[in-house]
Design a protein around this nucleic acid. Structure first.
Lengths: 245, 245
DNA sequence: AACCAATTATTGGTTAACCAAAAGTAATTA
DNA sequence: TAATTACTTTTGGTTAACCAATAATTGGTT
């Protein structure tokens, strides 16, 4: 029974945009569209695919975000110079991308944060430290009032990401955080007195960043995230088993 | 003189979409739009901002991707329940996001790949191994012919990302790779006989993955990426100094 | 007064039309 | 013949119009 439901969902996943991306992919893999080529005009594509131009534009926009297409105003949209094989692989992965897998989300977060805290510790400026202290104070205030402080928690982590001075790593964190917060709240990962414990952990992280002790910072972050990672990992293992059946 | 040019570019950066995102942000920070609220109808927004509805939709789409808005068909678009402070920070970071900083790009890639190869080594299936071997063979063929093989190189790394079974980490790699390839080619980071060296390094990585020796895999990956990381790091340090002036 | 059905208005989804800039083409000129 | 100019076509950019589904309102009924 469960399989039927799963299949239905799998089918309906195909949004108009993804359908077009898939068709564009086939156009490339079939050799009708080679790397570097100009795409047919948007109107032609919309006619050929039997869909409005908006969807074609939306699909192009998405592929442009991933650097697979490049459109020049009043001139045309061009396929990236990457080889067919790479294009093929990338497009496949783009279509199947989703952020609903919360164990994957948390796991990814764990690793990125460890990397981020190392870089932040190395590069933090006085301003970064200041921002971190304020964020921590906000967090502690909320906790001391016995309130939920998941977002203040995250704000602290955002400031760490900013302190890395690496815009790419920062962006990755940014892309994860909203879904992360949702998952943490929904799954009630934070236990009742998790807050006060986390407060101490935050302090440890901040101290290490202040003293620019990279290893200490990583360790502090690791133990801070350990509990939530364990939850994700067990869920992950369970999924693996289910998928193998 | 240089500053003038810089400012001009900084000004023209504001695409219609980003302008709207900025306005939405102000709507939130000013308290006119609270977390959980429904946005004004798209028509009203487009009228208020003096711009076509397409741009409003595009902005909403972007913010939806980051999980900050959620739109229900025939009902409305709703602001995420996150606090104003978090929303404010996230939106700011979204606007300033760009993948042009190639040192940041390479650095981020370095860390993600180290994480990825560990997970891949732990979780790779027989199929993953097979795909990796094929990718490696393709790569070696190109190299043995004395040709450029940047893309075959990347394909190998894509397969590693897929073997992690973590869709989030995989997606991050996917988002980086096109720009990565562009940068590597443009900056000619790969020296003339880098190819044959890299071939051996790839073999080391594959062997470690096959034997499921996690630490060996990480070490192999680290030395594989070390050279390119050094290039990025020196560029990074140079940028830091320039920015401080 | 409370509930329910029918109607109206509003919503995002989707398509079509219009615009200015660029590219291509044919006619014109040196 | 080669270069140039004027014109037509095609391009993505942008806006307006239409659609079906939903939400709100109204009027009637119990």
């Amino acid at each position: 029974m469960k399989n039927i439901i799963k299949n239905i969902q799998a089918l309906q996943v195909e949004s108009p945009t993804d359908k077009i991306i898939l068709q564009l992919k086939q156009l490339i893999t079939s050799g009708q569209l080679k790397p570097g080529d100009r795409l047919p005009a948007e109107r032609q594509l919309s006619e050929r695919f039997g869909v409005g131009r908006s969807y074609v534009r939306e699909a192009i926009l998405k592929l442009e975000f991933y650097g697979l297409l490049k459109t020049s105003p009043q001139s045309g949209t061009y396929v990236s110079g990457l080889s067919i094989k790479v294009l093929d692989n990338l497009i496949s992965d783009i279509i199947k991308f989703n952020k609903d897998d919360f164990s994957a989300l948390i796991e990814a977060r764990y690793y990125i944060e460890l990397d981020a805290v190392r870089l932040a510790t190395e590069r933090r400026t006085a301003e970064d430290l200041h921002a971190l202290k304020i964020a921590l104070a906000d967090y502690e205030l909320k906790i001391s009032q016995g309130l939920d402080a998941v977002e203040e928690d995250m704000l602290f982590h955002i400031k760490i990401a900013e302190a890395t001075k690496n815009s790419v790593i920062e962006s990755m964190m940014i892309a994860l955080i909203p879904d992360l917060i949702r998952n943490i709240i929904e799954n009630q990962i934070c236990g009742k007195d998790r807050g006060k414990l986390a407060m101490k952990e935050h302090r440890d992280i901040l101290r290490a960043i202040e003293e620019q002790d990279i290893d200490a910072a990583e360790n502090a972050m690791a133990s801070h995230l350990d509990e939530v990672l364990q939850v994700a990992r067990t869920a992950f293992a369970a999924n693996q088993i289910v998928n193998k059946q």
